[in-house]
Design a protein around this nucleic acid. Structure first.
Length: 298
DNA sequence: AAGCCGTGGCA
DNA sequence: TTGCCAAGGCT
């Protein structure tokens, strides 16, 4: 039987955003025709909490060297960690390598298109699973990242910032906006993210050039200040364990031989903090204890 | 479930 | 200068 899809009241928003996106989308590598599901997957890993401009060079090197999951799976994880370079959060390199092994062994080397199969891969959570299904395979799923949440909070809810992430509520809100058409839906998932990334930005949004400013609830309410719960503030980086971990990882990446305890001891003045950072890297599988020092995981 | 996990650009 | 924050995920 034929069911007429409900047309959401906000249909104009998705139409306007898609038109704007078609005309204004940045020319990014993963938007090129035929970029492939593996490239999309690698880009999504790298883009987790890392800006586009820092990702692009590492991504292109990565795909030139490992054009398939099987190619990455065939080298030791240490090579993935080295190629990750200073992108940050090096556990992602380990997880991406593990995912490549799983794709090779469990999926015949083909990146899955099913959200549950994607979620079962190491390092893939709700956002990345949906992003791969939507962007690599064109499936109609709501994809919700921090940009999308901010645009919805402002344009639809009339708040200056999104409230803390809530999976069910966020997916419901995006579902109300998502066009019925599979092709328009795929476009819209990218369009709303792009708007949040380049126009409806966190700090100084460019409302003067926003394609949906006339439909924006936040603007209509004259930009009220956000009053909800605030996101937990990041601890200071200088002097943190994260900084010490970063120093140790840079040292491990810099050579193919093991790094001695004596060399590691020169990296940080506080021995207790150094040992704590080292222990956490070992727990993460990023540093492996050897005879008189440490190496990357081979 | 709140805290942890890198790095660097920008206002 | 310093704090904010960036296509999250894991425990």
């Amino acid at each position: 039987m034929n069911v007429t899809p409900l047309i959401p009241a906000t249909d104009g928003v998705s139409t306007a955003l898609n038109a704007w996106f078609v005309a204004n989308a940045r020319d990014l590598p993963w938007r090129r025709d035929g970029f492939g599901a593996w490239g999309i997957l690698v880009s999504e890993f790298m883009l987790q909490q890392t800006p586009v401009n820092r990702v692009i060079p590492r991504l292109e090197e990565w795909l030139a060297r490992w054009p398939t999951p099987a190619a990455l799976a065939a080298v030791p994880p240490s090579e993935a960690v080295r190629a990750w370079s200073s992108l940050g959060y090096p556990r992602r390199a380990l997880w991406l390598h593990a995912a490549a092994v799983q794709i090779t062994e469990l999926h015949g080397g083909i990146v899955p298109s099913d959200i549950d199969e994607l979620l079962a891969l190491t390092g893939i959570g709700d956002y990345t699973a949906r992003a791969v299904a939507a962007f690599a395979y064109g499936h109609r799923h709501p994809v919700v990242d921090t940009n999308t949440r901010r645009v919805i909070a402002r344009a639809i809810a009339g708040a200056g910032e999104p409230s803390p992430p809530n999976r069910g509520r966020d997916l419901d809100a995006m579902n109300l906006l998502l066009p019925q058409s599979v092709q328009e839906a795929a476009l819209f998932n990218a369009a709303i993210m792009e708007l949040g990334a380049v126009v409806c930005t966190s700090r100084s949004p460019h409302c003067d050039v926003c394609p949906i400013r006339n439909a924006c609830a936040w603007r209509a309410a004259d930009y009220p200040e956000y009053t909800g719960a605030h996101k937990t503030v990041q601890k200071k980086f200088a002097g943190s364990d994260r900084q010490v971990r970063g120093l140790i990882m840079a040292e491990l990446r810099s050579t193919h031989r093991s790094v001695t305890d004596a060399e590691i001891n020169t990296l940080w003045p506080d021995p207790a903090q150094l040992q704590r950072a080292l222990a956490s890297l070992v727990a993460d599988g990023l540093a492996i204890p050897v005879r008189d020092g440490y190496t990357l995981p081979d």
